[in-house]
Lab assay of single mutants.
Amino acid sequence: MIINNLKLIREKKKISQSELAALLESSRQTINGIEKNKYNPSLQLALKIAYYLNTPLEDIFQWQ
């Protein structure tokens, strides 16, 4: 199971779900699903999230 700190990191950087979704060329619903652990992002999307949040991938997503 993958757990994530996306919501915590996103809020700390003062970025809304909609703003992050626009940067990622994704939907706000996708970001919401990832944050609620209802959806696991593809590797490509996970890497883009890490890039746009300027945060190491392993700080956002962790195996448990």
Rank of each mutant, 00 (worst) to 15 (best):
Y51M: 11
I34E: 01
N32A: 15
I15T: 03
E11D: 08
R10D: 02
R28P: 15
T30R: 10
S18K: 13
I15P: 00
A22N: 12
E58T: 10
L53S: 00
K14T: 05
S18A: 13
S16C: 05
W63M: 04
M1A: 06
S18R: 14
A50H: 01
I15C: 06
L57D: 00
K36M: 14
L24Y: 01
Y51G: 06
F61H: 00
L53K: 00
I31M: 03
E58H: 13
S27F: 05
I34G: 02
P56V: 06
M1T: 07
S26V: 15
L45R: 01
Q64W: 08
E35F: 05
K12E: 11
T55H: 07
A46R: 06
I9A: 06
A21H: 03
I60T: 01
Q17A: 07
Q17V: 13
L43G: 04
P41Q: 02
L43Y: 14
L53W: 02
N37I: 03
P41H: 02
L47G: 06
I3P: 02
G33H: 13
Y39E: 10
I9Y: 09
Q29E: 15
F61M: 01
K13P: 01
I3Q: 08
S42G: 09
L20E: 01
N40T: 15
E25L: 12
F61T: 00
K12Q: 14
N40C: 15
Q29Y: 11
L23E: 06
D59P: 03
G33F: 13
L23F: 12
T30M: 14
T30H: 11
P41S: 02
L20V: 01
L6Y: 00
K12M: 13
Q17C: 05
K48W: 06
I2E: 04
K36L: 14
D59W: 08
L43W: 12
N4V: 08
F61I: 02
M1N: 05
T30G: 03
I2D: 04
L45M: 13
T55C: 08
L47M: 13
Y52L: 13
K48P: 00
E11I: 13
Y52H: 12
N54H: 10
R28C: 11
Q44E: 14
K48R: 13
I31G: 01
Y39I: 15
L53E: 00
S18P: 06
Q17I: 14
N5T: 03
I49E: 00
L43R: 12
L8M: 13
L23W: 13
S16D: 04
S42F: 04
A22P: 03
S26H: 09
N5S: 04
E19A: 14
S42A: 05
A21T: 03
L23V: 11
R10P: 03
K36R: 13
K36A: 13
P41A: 04
W63C: 06
A22E: 12
I15S: 01
L23A: 15
N54S: 12
K13M: 14
W63R: 03
L24G: 01
K38F: 13
I2F: 10
E11R: 10
T55L: 06
I31Q: 01
N5H: 07
D59E: 14
K12D: 08
N32G: 08
G33K: 15
N4S: 02
S27C: 08
E19W: 09
S16F: 04
L57V: 11
S27Y: 04
I49P: 00
E25A: 13
I34M: 04
L6C: 09
K14W: 06
W63Q: 03
L20T: 00
E25P: 14
A22I: 12
N54T: 08
Y52Q: 07
K12Y: 10
I15A: 02
N5A: 06
S27E: 07
T30P: 02
I34R: 02
Y39D: 05
K38N: 11
E19V: 11
Q64L: 06
E58R: 11
E25Q: 15
L20H: 00
W63N: 02
L8Y: 11
I2Y: 10
Q64T: 12
K13V: 08
I9Q: 04
Q62F: 07
A22H: 13
Y52W: 11
N4C: 10
I9D: 00
R10Q: 02
Y51H: 11
Q62H: 07
E11T: 12
L8K: 15
S26Y: 09
Y39C: 14
T30I: 15
R28G: 07
R10F: 07
F61A: 00
A50Q: 03
P41N: 03
E35N: 01
I31W: 01
K38P: 02
F61R: 00
N40H: 12
D59R: 08
P56E: 07
E11W: 07
L45F: 14
R28E: 15
I49C: 02
E25R: 15
I60W: 03
N4M: 08
I60H: 00
K36E: 15
N37D: 07
I60V: 08
N54V: 07
S27T: 14
A21C: 04
R10K: 00
L24K: 00
T30Y: 15
L47K: 13
S16A: 06
I2N: 06
K12I: 10
Q64A: 14
S18I: 11
I31S: 01
W63V: 04
Y52N: 05
K48T: 05
T55K: 04
Q44K: 13
Y51N: 07
S16G: 07
L20A: 00
K14D: 08
G33L: 15
R10L: 07
L57G: 01
T55A: 08
K13G: 05
R10C: 12
I9H: 06
T30L: 15
T30A: 09
E25S: 14
N5C: 13
K48L: 09
Y52M: 10
D59A: 11
N32M: 13
E11A: 08
M1K: 06
L43K: 10
K36C: 12
K36Y: 07
A22F: 12
L57F: 06
L23T: 06
Y39P: 01
Q62A: 09
I9N: 02
A21Q: 02
E25M: 13
L23D: 05
S16Y: 04
L47A: 10
K36I: 11
N40D: 08
A21Y: 02
E35L: 05
Q17K: 08
L6Q: 02
N40K: 14
L8A: 14
L45T: 05
A46K: 04
I3A: 07
K48H: 05
P56T: 06
L20P: 00
I3D: 04
I34A: 01
E19I: 09
E25H: 15
S42M: 04
K7Q: 11
L57N: 01
E25K: 15
Q64E: 14
L20C: 04
K36G: 09
S18E: 13
K36N: 15
P41K: 03
K48M: 10
Q44T: 12
W63P: 03
L57C: 07
D59M: 11
N32Y: 07
T30V: 15
S26D: 08
E35K: 03
N40G: 11
